[in-house]
């Protein structure tokens, strides 16, 4: 039997089968589809045949006189052969209100993007545990996404309560709550620092300085490796250029340089605990 591609005539086919006795019982969907037949043909066709925009066979348009110019076409050009029904192969554009809100928020608060963000999720379903009836969440830090989700919740809540909250009202409410929390956060960190420094804490280095220092240890050991590798590469090049003797003898060592260097450096790096830096 020919493969059936058309979804529209599934009802027709099935009724034929029933009549012919191929199918003995009516499928459960039969009456429903009969009452609500598919209105559009969802078959994807590469060319616009039905609209008569394009000839099914490009050769059909050959050797016909063009009335306007009086010329004859003797060979089909690229546009005749090409697929003009492009929209069927395009991935449909997905549009969400969330995305628009995100765009607006980050346009208005570009520095929010500069805050560090964790991309690691334990199960990827932390968002399910969030309760957007409030701004602060136990499972995610306060950021632009909180404003987006809270706005949507407020919209929905307005609908349920019949208060007719507009999108702008909901967004503004979420935004101002967000500002309040940010103010609280900033004050909290400033006061913490002041409080602990008045209790005698000394902050010898900033977080950035500390990070640079830690990174430098690795950069130093890398520099050693890199300089040796460069030497080897240059030596190989020179050898190839000067003579053909020993061309196949590469000076590259059998074991990776990284391993040996990192073994030695990781011991020295590993000895210093992360927190030791603070006491120095």
């Amino acid at each position: 039997m020919k493969i059936q591609r058309s979804a529209t005539n599934v009802l027709e086919r099935t009724s034929q089968y029933l009549k012919a006795g191929v199918l003995r019982e009516k499928p459960a969907w039969f009456n429903v589809v009969g009452a609500n037949p598919p209105s559009t043909d969802l078959t994807k066709k590469p060319k616009k045949f039905e609209l008569k925009d394009q000839e099914e066979d490009p050769r059909n348009s050959l050797f016909k006189k063009n009335e306007a110019t009086g010329f004859y076409k003797t060979s089909s050009d690229k546009s005749d052969r090409s697929q003009k029904h492009n929209s069927i192969s395009r991935v449909p554009k997905l549009q969400f209100l969330e995305d628009e809100l995100r765009n607006v928020f980050y346009q208005q608060h570009p520095w929010e993007l500069s805050r560090p963000k964790t991309l690691i999720e334990t199960n990827g379903d932390e968002y399910k545990k969030c309760d957007w009836s409030r701004m602060l969440q136990l499972y995610k830090p306060l950021d632009g996404e909180s404003v987006v989700q809270r706005t949507l919740w407020l919209l929905q809540d307005g609908k349920e309560k019949g208060t007719n909250t507009s999108l702008f009202e909901a967004y503004d409410q979420a935004r101002f709550e967000f500002y309040r929390h940010r103010m609280q956060e900033e004050m909290s960190s400033a006061v913490s620092k002041e409080e602990s420094s008045l209790y005698g804490a000394v902050f010898a280095s900033t977080n950035i300085e500390w990070g640079v220092k830690r990174e430098q240890e690795h950069v130093d050991s890398w520099a050693k490796v890199a300089s040796e590798k460069t030497k080897i590469r240059n030596a190989n090049k020179d050898g190839k250029a000067s003579s053909s003797i020993g061309m196949n003898d590469s000076a590259t060592p059998s074991s990776s340089m990284w391993e040996s260097v990192f073994e030695s450096s990781s011991q020295s790096v590993g000895d210093t605990s992360i927190y030791e830096n603070d006491s120095k």
Binding site: M187, S188, A190, V191, S192, E195
Partner: peptide
């Protein structure tokens, strides 16, 4: 008011 109450809220120990 925000400044005053946030400052107070941020104090962890006695203050």
């Amino acid at each position: 008011r925000t400044l005053l109450l946030n400052s107070a809220n941020s104090i962890k120990g006695d203050g």
